[in-house]
Design a protein around this nucleic acid. Structure first.
Length: 233
DNA sequence: GCGACAG
DNA sequence: ATCTTGTCGC
């Protein structure tokens, strides 16, 4: 048998490398997103996030595996890869996904659900990095962003747990969620194999004493190489 | 044409 | 995201 000539399984298939091509690919991949809950068991949750070194030339992706019930970290992995694309609003996954997939693959076990820093379907073409990660990995994912990319929403209460739908062009694309009293709300949207209705609850179940849920909070600490422990108990 | 714009 | 000390506020 002949050895495969070329088959570098890029997470972007046959992308031509241009921003225009990336947008077209997003439209195709968005059709594969499943917005129904599909995770029979929920024992392991992973959190992923990205950071940079050397003024941006090196991309650092962190993946943390936690026990879904106790939220105790079971394992964490960090990968460093040369940055291949600049940040372009709406095309974030093309810059960060390669590194994220590597870090996720390094985990000792496959998670039942993945929390990703950034938007899920709350995106111009319904394919934020969390949704793209879900379609690319096949895993259930939820996007947990700190800011809105697109969409508007009604006024939000100031107490922990308060939430209002994020609207965009007549559709509900996510939930603006107050994870703690008085803090800036989180923008939660389904990535893949998770419904719009259950995403907020899944995120709140992972919030302890901080604004960010444990999965992405720990991954964020690792990716941004910020040390620090978690005092209050 | 003029802004807005995840990380 | 990242560059960076102290400072205002709950």
């Amino acid at each position: 048998m002949s050895a495969p000539l070329v088959a570098p399984d890029s997470p972007f298939g046959d992308w031509d490398g241009t921003p225009a091509g990336a947008r077209l690919l997003q439209l195709e991949l968005a059709e594969r997103v499943v917005l129904q809950d599909d995770f029979p068991v929920l024992r392991l949750i992973a959190g992923v996030d990205v950071g940079f070194e050397e003024g941006g030339s090196i991309t650092r992706a962190a993946a943390v595996l936690l026990d879904a019930d106790t939220l105790e970290p079971l394992a964490e992995r960090l990968v460093r890869i040369p940055t291949s694309m600049p940040y372009i609003p709406g095309l974030l996954s093309f810059r960060e996904l390669p590194a994220v997939l590597c870090a996720l693959a390094e985990l000792p076990r496959v998670p039942d659900l993945v929390f990703c820093d950034g938007q899920g379907i709350a995106h111009p073409r319904r394919l934020g990095i969390a949704a793209h990660l879900g379609v690319a990995s096949g895993l259930p994912t939820i996007g947990v962003a700190k800011k809105i990319l697109v969409g508007t929403h009604a006024e939000l209460g100031s107490k922990r747990g308060d939430q209002v739908p994020l609207m965009y062009r007549g559709d509900v694309l996510g939930t603006v969620l107050r994870s703690k009293d008085g803090v800036r709300p989180l923008i939660v949207s389904p990535g893949h194999r998770v419904s719009l209705a259950s995403a907020p609850g899944l995120v709140m179940a992972c919030v302890t004493h901080y604004r960010l849920p444990e999965p992405t909070r720990l991954a964020d600490r690792l990716a941004s190489r910020r040390a620090g422990y978690s005092p209050p108990a």
